[in-house]
């Protein structure tokens, strides 16, 4: 089996054979964390992932063709639309048009314009299940994605072709310096997402989500597109290398063991306070009840 196209690899996110590719291209020396991940991954999953990667590669070949071949100026005409874009348009008109309007221009009070958000935003919003929205709330909750990876590709192709904007990155998204990533994470991200990405509360019912379930590409596209209240981190502010460092840090720390025992959510003093009362004091109270009893 051949190594899949790096582009397709990035597209399908966490469940692609990235581990395998990293294994072949960047042996363990550079990144012990990567090696650990590889070891943990079972052969079966790897095989499934390879198939998925191949399929994604096929899909993307079409997408790329359509995205690169036609000129952006005539984006709104249907004459040059590729099959993926057409499928994307169909999906868009079925699920998104109510809020985001015809031709991505947005509907006041319902949904913003999607012109200029790019495929990065589409990937993040749809792959994390935030879009389509079930109802208007303080913040779109993440939930299992409604669209398949193939459908997401089609939607991205449609939005990218018709509105333009930030595109998906390619290559190894964890190809960065671990320590630098940590420093950048604490400077730029931890204030909302907590020390190690456990998430945190924002004003009036909004929240910075936990990064526990986020895959590399979701984190990358989130930084790139600044979904909802998250600030945008453009490529001139955090370079792609820095973004990769941050992702490397987040995913490494997320995956590493807690050498001191149960992590209790890695939440710090609030959880520890709960433990000392509910476990420590309770156990000792039980102990002294027992000691005080006659039998």
């Amino acid at each position: 089996m051949s190594t899949p196209d790096p582009q397709s690899d990035a597209l399908t996110g966490e469940d692609t054979p990235r581990g395998l590719r990293r294994w072949s291209r960047r042996p363990t020396a550079g990144s012990p964390a990567a090696a650990a991940r590889v070891r943990r991954r079972s052969k079966q999953r790897r095989r499934v992932a390879n198939v998925a990667g191949l399929m994604a590669a096929l899909v993307l070949t079409g997408t790329l063709y359509s995205a690169l071949a036609p000129s952006q100026a005539t984006a709104q005409t249907n004459t040059t639309e590729s099959s993926a874009e057409a499928a994307g348009r169909e999906l868009y008109e079925r699920s998104c048009i109510t809020c985001h309007g015809e031709n991505l221009e947005g509907v006041p009070t319902r949904g913003p314009s999607l012109i200029g958000v790019g495929e990065a935003a589409v990937y993040f919003q749809v792959h994390t299940g935030r879009m389509p929205l079930v109802r208007q709330e303080a913040q779109a909750p993440d939930k299992p994605a409604i669209f398949s990876d193939e459908e997401i590709d089609q939607l991205m192709a449609y939005v990218q072709a018709n509105g333009g904007g930030p595109t998906l990155p390619s290559g190894d998204l964890r190809d960065g310096d671990l320590a630098e990533g940590g420093e950048l994470f604490r400077l730029n991200c931890a204030s909302c997402h907590n020390f190690v990405g456990e998430g945190g509360a924002l004003s009036s019912g909004k929240r910075a989500p936990s990064l526990d379930d986020a895959n590399d590409l979701e984190i990358y596209t989130a930084m790139l597109s600044g979904p909802e209240n998250m600030p945008v981190f453009g490529d001139n502010q955090l370079t792609p290398e820095e973004k990769r460092s941050i992702i490397n840090y987040v995913q490494t720390v997320k995956g590493q063991a807690d050498p001191g025992g149960a992590g209790v959510g890695r939440l710090g003093p609030a959880a520890e306070g709960l433990v000392i009362w509910v476990v420590g004091v309770a156990a000792l109270m039980f102990g002294i009840f027992w000691m005080g009893s006659k039998a």
Partner: peptide, 17 residues
Amino acid sequence: WGPYNPAQVSAASQPDW
């Protein structure tokens, strides 16, 4: 938690109980 830096902070910074 990382080393202290006056420009950095994390959500849910709390003292012990």
